[in-house]
Simulated scan of single mutants.
Amino acid sequence: MSGSESGWYRGDCHVHSVCSHGGELTPQRLADEARAARLDFLAATEHNNADTHATWGRYAGDDLLVILGQEVTTRTGHWLALGVRPGQVVDWRYGVQDGVIDRHLDEVRRGGGLCVAAHPHAPYDSGTFLYPYEGFDVVEVWNGPWSSDLPWQADNEAALAEWGRGLDADIRRQGGWRPAMGNSDAHLSGQIGVPHTVVRAEELSMGAVLAGIRAGRSWIAESAAVELSFTVSAGAQQTCVGGQLKSCGGPIVARVGVRGVPSGVVSFHTGEGKVHVASLSAAGVGAVEWRTSARESPFVRVEVRHPGGRMAALSNPVTLL
């Protein structure tokens, strides 16, 4: 697919080079591994510096978009500033009690950037996220391998559960909601793209990709081997992940197609929790349908897990009217 076309693009928006603490990869190596992982874009998010910003031009190309960013590591939680200006460094020297976070979020947004609450349940000093989600555009619910013994990896189950609980309240209260995304937080070789976010964008450009993420037109994959389609229809109307469907009181059909998850388990989730479960074949290819109505829940989203519970893919919701 040409980068000038509307379509689904795969990318990892949380990666580190040797310019971050614990990073062992050069920008060139990151770009090479991103291409090997079949990614279309990445975001360079060094810890509190812009040291690699000037180098990315030589490694990006028509087949790999590089978005400039930063992991802002404050005293009471980390966040991703995506789409910053070349050389821009966002201040990180504060905590939740200082009451200054909104000023820095506004600084990023004024430049067209996106603000992401990063690994909100990370089990290390300053990793636990104490800021209200209301100030952020997106929540990183999946950070690194889903099941990991590495002490710096996030508690993904806790992050997903917290985000999921907030969906129903957000949609019912204000009609809006905060999308989820997933990233690798790569520091070492072989980590990039595990997981990554698959975004519906008008083209492969920073503005279009960030717009797709902000709108929730995306789902999360553990690797490029996993493919997922998620549509919801009512009569002649149909929409996909991140969309909104008006049913006029009639039946709604949610359909999921999956490839690359042998003997996987597909589950549909609404404001009532997990409402329908179905198994895939040993070949890992299949489709599942579930029927509902807007009276039952204002949204539906999907998870696909491997046998044993490890996540393979999860979607943002479709909202129902």
Rank of each mutant, 00 (worst) to 15 (best):
G69S: 12
A236S: 11
P179V: 04
P317H: 01
S184M: 05
D155H: 04
G271S: 09
Y9Q: 06
W177F: 12
A254E: 04
E140A: 04
V302S: 05
R214P: 07
I220T: 06
S189K: 09
S2R: 12
A50N: 13
L314I: 08
C115S: 08
V302G: 03
G61W: 05
V18H: 06
A158Q: 09
W142T: 11
R10Y: 12
T26Q: 02
L314C: 14
A211P: 00
T45Y: 00
L64M: 03
S263D: 15
R178W: 04
V285H: 08
G249P: 08
G216K: 05
G271N: 05
G176V: 09
A44Y: 01
R305P: 00
R214M: 01
P179T: 06
L314M: 15
G260T: 10
L25H: 02
H269Y: 14
V285I: 11
G235A: 06
I220L: 02
P251N: 04
G193F: 06
G260P: 00
R172G: 00
Y124Q: 15
P195F: 06
P123V: 09
Q238G: 13
L80I: 09
V15H: 02
S218F: 01
S147C: 13
W177I: 15
G190V: 05
A282P: 08
V300D: 04
V304C: 03
Y94D: 12
G166S: 06
I252R: 00
C13H: 02
G207H: 09
D12M: 02
V318Q: 12
A50R: 05
Y94G: 11
V84E: 00
A161C: 03
F129S: 03
G3I: 13
A154T: 07
G113L: 02
N49L: 04
S148C: 09
A34G: 14
V108G: 00
L30Q: 09
V108Q: 00
A211Q: 03
N143L: 02
T76Q: 11
D137T: 12
E5F: 10
R291N: 14
L64H: 11
V304W: 00
H104Y: 15
E71W: 06
W290H: 15
L114R: 01
K274A: 09
W177V: 07
M181F: 03
